[in-house]
Design a protein around this nucleic acid. Structure first.
Lengths: 198, 198
DNA sequence: ACTACTATTAGGACCTAGTCACAAAATCGG
DNA sequence: CCGATTTTGTGACTAGGTCCTAATAGTAGT
């Protein structure tokens, strides 16, 4: 039965790893052994009790919470959009977006906002950036609000859609970029928008 | 003492809000009342007990954990770096980096890796991207590993450092970009690295 | 078959951080 | 000073354990 113990402990470790919220009682049932066996196993594997496990998960998250913000499908909040024509999004620069030392926004966040808006404005299931020429014209600091404006300029010889994005803090241009976008269904500029709004 | 109760409950709410890991006993001491009073207060404010609070923090984080990955100071893992010369980082594309519909990596992550590497390779306290010409040459899919290689090409007429970054999946080029970087202390190419390694 | 050994199960005492219900004491406002 | 509100104390009970001791099962070696 040594083999069995090994195996059980291996599975026990994995089970708890993927669901730290499981009690000894539930584990005992799952492995068809007594609660005491589970406790011995935990002791041998030095896996702490339920409450301690939960606590450590909570503590870890609590420490990270401040600086980790999920990257949503669209970076920034879209406040206006005309498919295949133009779009506007806003993005508030928080402390998690800046360099610690000087509070200047990290470039890729501005790029992400613009790129994301360029993708969103394309009326197509599959829109991908193929090229971009970008320029960071002014440093953006913590707590500033960046407004990105995307404008679809037309289609080039390769059937790629050109989107121009300019981002502002107040009246000042902080970022500008020209994005060449690949799309699966080529639509003429001034083309009628279809009902594929999502 | 009605005033006092109100105030205590207000503070109680705030205290627990900012530190959910505090026990009734500690709270009782903090407000110089009995444990029972704290319990009545929690009851009135419908604040759950310590363990439930911790649990909910843990659950929330556990649910988010999968999809929210903290944006570290450098995106991707740097595996080699020669300041002011070259650097290499790897970035594993996980499900949180791709479009749900087609599993293609979102462009800004590749940009972020490259940009971040371009910043890192500059031997300067303050390095910022001012311009970039980028190209996404092949789609990157979930579970692929992107290796970005940055090479410092020199300094242009404006004192800006030019960094070229090429990213590969295996032998295939997936991204290439030329970054123009601003730096506070201009150093000649082939300049000796100073001891400012962090 | 007996012994040695590990593995498993059982039980009881104790712990923490509570819950709920009831009663008694303190305090405040009119 | 009185009544209402607020606070405190007490006792019984809970979940999900720890720690310790002891009994039982199962398996291998001689």
């Amino acid at each position: 039965m040594r083999r069995n113990k090994r195996e059980r402990q291996r599975l026990l470790r994995e089970t708890i790893e993927e669901n730290p919220f499981i009690t000894d009682e539930e584990l005992a049932e799952k492995f068809s052994v007594s609660i005491q066996t589970i406790r011995l196993d935990r002791l041998e594997l030095s896996i702490p009790e339920l409450r301690e496990r939960i606590k450590s998960v909570a503590e870890k998250s609590f420490a990270d919470q401040v600086k980790s913000l999920p990257i949503e499908e669209v970076i920034g909040e879209i406040i206006d959009i005309q498919l295949d024509d133009s779009a506007i999004s806003i993005f508030d620069v928080k402390k998690e977006h800046v360099f610690k030392r000087n509070k200047i926004a990290r470039g890729h966040h501005l790029f992400a906002q613009a790129n994301s808006l360029a993708v969103a404005v394309i009326n197509d299931e599959l829109a991908l950036t193929t090229k971009a020429m970008i320029r960071f014209t002014r440093q953006v600091k913590e707590n500033e609000r960046v407004v990105a404006k995307a404008k679809v300029k037309g289609t080039n010889e390769n059937g790629r859609t050109i989107v121009e994005v300019n981002s502002y803090v107040g009246q000042e241009l902080v970022f500008s970029g020209e994005f060449e976008m690949y799309r699966s269904n080529i639509v003429k500029k001034d083309g009628v928008k279809d009902e594929n709004s999502n």
